[in-house]
Design a protein around this nucleic acid. Sequence first.
DNA 1: ATAATCACCTGCTCGC
DNA 2: TGCGAGCAGGTGATTA
Length: 271
Amino acid sequence: MPELPEVEITRQGIAPIAEGRRVTEVRIRNSRLRWPISPELAQELPGQIIHSIERRAKYLLLRAETGTVIMHLGMSGSLRFVAPARPANRHEHADILLDDDYCLRLHDPRRFGALLWTRDDPHTHPLLASLGQEPLDVAFNGAALYERACGRRQAVKAFITDSHNVAGVGNIYANEALFVAKIHPQRAAGRISRARYCVLANAIQQVLRDAIRQGGTTLRDFTGSDGRPGHFRQSLRVYGRCTAACVICQRPLRGVRIAQRSTVYCAHCQR
DNA sequence: ATAATCACCTGCTCGC
DNA sequence: TGCGAGCAGGTGATTA
């Protein structure tokens, strides 16, 4: 479900309520996510204040006093505040209860998500340490992408969806950004000029910012932590529009699979 | 080192 | 209506 904009929308919805509040209890109903939920979470987190909630790539980092909760929503995860007494359904695997009767509930049908605890600097955690540039960071630019892509024959779309190159660009927004940048998704990453990488970097930023502004993309079930869907779906130019007309040249869009992911592009506008 | 494929899950849609 | 096939927003691990 969530790509970077959806994770950021989730962060923005949760942070104002959770930050500064104290954890009263952690309830784990099913710890079988991508990795087992850290058992220390239920032991160590209660009693601690959540100082802040950050996002790195598609990870949410809940900073507490003696450590940090590292959370990932995988493909189908979502996070909502519910009434603490509300019965959990079979996909609601964990709750973090806070002061004032707030209950932050993790829902994840496919269980590709993660809920981990670390006492160390989370940015040195194995899952985060080798992540690429944060695309919405002011320092993000095409020059670094160009350097990194040097010599690579991999399709540029696979290159930009690899979080070690750019952090957090998933399938939807990779399709969209490549369309905006007029770059063919199957072009070899190492055969794109520095100037075009600068255009691509700007396109990635523009698409992600736009999506965040519109509350993310709701395909079937994404909602922010307030339960409201995102509206970026109506702004999608290529994703999910295979065979429909290109919004620029009106020719039919084409679909291919790149790195096991559906890819849609305009063969006329993207080169 | 790089690139491609597999694996982990459930739920939904489609065609027969 | 039922049923199998294929697909879905991610990404680490495994294989060449």
